[in-house]
């Protein structure tokens, strides 16, 4: 049953991905990327990776969809009709995909009890058996993320920080458009005057 659910969800992923490629309407494509992440989160939950699913749902289908929409507002909503499709591009895509599939064949099967992560005495066994005495939190993922692998998480935080700096450098937070400087008559602040038009956007 579980395997069936995973297979169905993964097939949904494939269909959604094809839809994203085929659609010319970029707005619909962006919504589909959000759906893609949501379905992926569902698959992660079935695989008992709740923390990963949580992140995927919050980041993938939440924030990135909004940021895509923001980026979309700079462009048109329709993709330009492409000219001839490049055979060179197809070649490289097929080769890269083939290499990735080839690499997968070396990975341990899903849930395999003999994968290195399970059999290595210092990793899964140690975390499951000792983390309660060594670190404390019942959620082992938190123990690993924040304590055993605290240095890695520090690096991740710095990566997020760097992304923030890059965005501030490229898009600039301080630069305001002239309209923003004019004091807005707080559109949402005047619920008692439904007809009061304070539109600053026109």
């Amino acid at each position: 049953m579980e395997t069936l659910t995973i297979v169905v969800l993964l097939m949904f992923l494939v269909v959604t991905a094809i839809g994203i490629i085929v659609l010319r309407d970029l707005l619909a494509a962006v919504i589909l990327t959000g759906l893609y992440s949501l379905v992926a989160a569902g698959a992660f939950i079935v695989m008992d990776a709740v923390d990963v699913a949580f992140t995927e749902a919050a980041v993938g289908s939440g924030i990135s969809t909004i940021l895509f929409l923001g980026a979309l507002s700079f462009t048109k909503h329709q993709q330009k009709p492409r000219g001839h499709d490049s055979w060179v591009a197809l070649f490289f895509v097929v080769v890269t995909g083939g290499l990735l599939l080839f690499g997968i064949s070396d990975m341990p099967r899903y849930g395999s009890a003999t994968s290195p992560a399970q059999t290595h005495p210092q990793i899964a066994k140690r975390f499951i058996e000792q983390s309660g005495d060594e670190v404390g939190p019942p959620n082992i993922v938190t123990s690993v993320l924040a304590s055993y692998r605290g240095y890695d998480t520090l690096g991740e935080t710095v990566v997020v920080f760097t992304a923030g700096i890059a965005v501030m450098g490229l898009l600039g937070l301080k630069r305001r458009r002239p309209e923003d400087e004019t004091p807005e008559h707080a559109s949402g602040d005047v619920p008692h005057e439904p007809g009061h038009d304070t539109d600053r956007l026109t």
Binding site: I63, I66, L67, G70, A71, S73, F74, V160, F161, A163, G164, V167, M168, L170, L171, G172, L173, R175, R176, R177, D180
Partner: peptide
């Protein structure tokens, strides 16, 4: 960082 990403996009 997330809020400033939004500010960056929305203000442009």
């Amino acid at each position: 960082v997330m809020v400033s990403l939004f500010y960056g996009f929305a203000s442009k």
